[in-house]
Computed example of a mutant assay.
Amino acid sequence: MAGPARLCVTNQKGGVGKTTVAINVAGALNELGRNVLFVDLDPQGNATEGLGLLEAYDDEPPTLLDALIDPEAVSPDDIVHSHSEMDVVTSNIDMNAAASALARQSNAETLLEDLLDGIEEGYEYVIVDCPPHLGVLTDNALCATENLVIPALTEPTSKRSLELLFDYVGSLEMDHDVEIEPVALVANRIETTREDEEMLAWFEDALPDVPLYRVRKRVALQRAFTDGKSVFEADEETDMETVFTALAETLEDRFSTREVTA
């Protein structure tokens, strides 16, 4: 039987709201009644903080890094934490040593895949939040999930960052014999300027086969993050809930034929 749908949320350009998008995609899937496992692969632990689990960032070993290096030696209970909307594999301060520690492993780019194979039972979606840069951790996320959600700002620098990302993905596909598909592009923090509208048109022209979602700048998104939850559980309502719901429904359509391992 097929396992859960796996997705990674990444853009090597920092400051694009990657973690906020990842949390709210997971929250939208939970709102649709899906069991979600969220993996914070970013050594900075922004998602761990944004889901109200910052104390876990300073946990003693075994941690996520230990689980990546030797998944059979670590119990899921050591790294999976409960949240009202999803279960969370939290990041940890030890992850700051991940680049050098993982690079010494013979299967450095497939360690996350091996870990997920052992802990994803019973979930319908796995959402992986990546670091804001390319490297061995992002390689792991891309190879393990093969499905890519891309947050991007509506500014000209996004053109170059997307070109670099797709070049990088192409090289990874050839090196590891995988097919990595972009399943959604999230134009984030949109304001009502001519530049924003021009960039939205560019996104549609450059990636005509990738669904585009428009997330406008809303204080409620940041407030929900500060409160440790997605906008779907926040006290303050926002019209951006409908955008994330639409994205989740598209994912449901795409992955509806999958069966979840019991």
Rank of each mutant, 00 (worst) to 15 (best):
P61N: 01
P62K: 03
L64I: 03
L65F: 03
D66Y: 00
A67H: 05
I69T: 08
D70H: 05
E72S: 14
V74F: 02
P76F: 11
I79T: 03
I79V: 10
S82R: 15
S84C: 01
S84Y: 08
E85C: 13
M86I: 08
V89Y: 09
T90M: 10
T90D: 13
N92E: 05
M95H: 02
M95P: 01
N96T: 02
A97M: 13
A97P: 02
A98S: 12
A98F: 04
A99M: 04
A101Y: 09
A101R: 11
A101E: 12
L102W: 01
L102H: 00
S106C: 01
N107I: 11
E109R: 13
T110I: 15
L112Y: 10
E113C: 09
L116P: 02
E121A: 13
G122W: 04
Y123F: 08
E124N: 08
D129R: 08
D129V: 07
P131C: 01
P131T: 01
P131Y: 05
G135Y: 10
D139S: 14
N140M: 04
A141W: 10
A141H: 06
C143P: 00
T145K: 13
E146N: 14
L148K: 07
V149T: 02
P151N: 13
A152I: 06
T154L: 11
P156R: 09
T157V: 14
R160G: 04
S161M: 10
L162Y: 07
L162H: 03
L162M: 12
E163Y: 15
L165R: 05
